[in-house]
Simulated scan of single mutants.
Amino acid sequence: MQDILERAKAIRLVVFDVDGVLTDGSLFLGDDGQEYKAFHSRDGHGMAMLRDSGVALAVITGRRSEVVRIRMQSLGIEHVHQGCKDKLPVFLKLAAGLGIAPAEAAYMGDDLMDLPVMRRVGLAVAVADAHPVVREHAHWCTPSGGGRGAARDLCELILRAQDKLDALVQDYLGADRPA
């Protein structure tokens, strides 16, 4: 675990896949073709805490969905790349544009198309219910499944490794409240 914390300490950018990572992978389609997805609110809060701590956040997903655009906008995530069948060139361009080395990036995925990016980053993370090959190539697997708190697991791991989590928790507890 010490190696994982050392990797997490260096992270300046976290990139998330969407389907199977920020959602449980289910796709709900209405008769009119409208797509619906369920996002976990605690994942969103973890992402917001990590973003507010100074870590850049991004999404790279193979599908296009208006609901993803809306959800990421509500979380203040500026770097949203949809419809990316080949995620590695998108990741490399994003990292270079932000002046961040791949070793300073984390990527969270769940399926085979995530492997090219996962193999290039400093911290490759698989959700608990990821494809077995993806879990095999991850530096760390979350205790929670995709869409069920996995993103929060990663956000708190990074915040803990960077010595920022305790202060955030204390802010919620309030400095003037008794322990």
Rank of each mutant, 00 (worst) to 15 (best):
M1G: 07
M1L: 10
M1A: 11
Q2M: 05
D3H: 12
D3K: 14
L5Q: 13
L5K: 12
E6A: 12
I11P: 01
I11H: 00
L13I: 01
V14W: 06
D17I: 08
V18G: 10
G20C: 08
L22G: 05
L22D: 03
L22A: 07
T23H: 12
S26W: 06
S26F: 02
L27Q: 02
L29Y: 09
Q34V: 15
E35H: 05
Y36C: 07
A38T: 10
A38S: 14
H40Y: 13
G44I: 06
G46K: 08
D52G: 09
S53Q: 06
G54P: 08
A56S: 09
A56M: 04
A58K: 09
V59I: 15
T61M: 11
G62Y: 05
G62V: 12
R64D: 04
S65F: 00
V67Y: 01
R69A: 15
I70V: 14
I70H: 02
R71M: 01
R71F: 03
I77D: 05
Q82L: 15
G83L: 07
C84M: 13
C84R: 13
K85R: 13
K85L: 15
D86L: 04
K87L: 03
K87S: 03
V90T: 13
K93D: 15
A96G: 09
G97D: 11
I100Y: 05
A101Y: 04
A101Q: 14
A101D: 15
A105Y: 06
A106K: 03
Y107P: 11
Y107Q: 09
M108H: 00
G109D: 08
D111S: 04
L112P: 00
L115T: 03
L115E: 09
P116W: 07
V117R: 13
M118K: 11
M118A: 04
R119S: 14
G122W: 14
G122A: 10
V125D: 01
A128D: 07
D129V: 00
D129C: 06
D129Q: 10
A130F: 10
A130R: 04
H131N: 14
P132Q: 11
P132A: 09
V133E: 14
V133N: 02
V134Y: 12
E136K: 15
E136I: 10
E136W: 15
H137L: 14
H137D: 14
A138E: 02
A138N: 07
A138F: 12
A138S: 12
W140V: 13
W140A: 10
C141K: 08
P143R: 07
S144C: 12
G147E: 08
R148E: 14
R148N: 12
G149W: 10
A150D: 07
A150S: 12
D153K: 05
D153C: 06
L154K: 09
E156H: 02
L157T: 13
L157A: 09
Q162G: 01
K164N: 00
D166F: 02
L168Q: 11
V169D: 02
Y172N: 09
Y172T: 06
Y172P: 00
L173D: 00
A175G: 04
R177M: 02
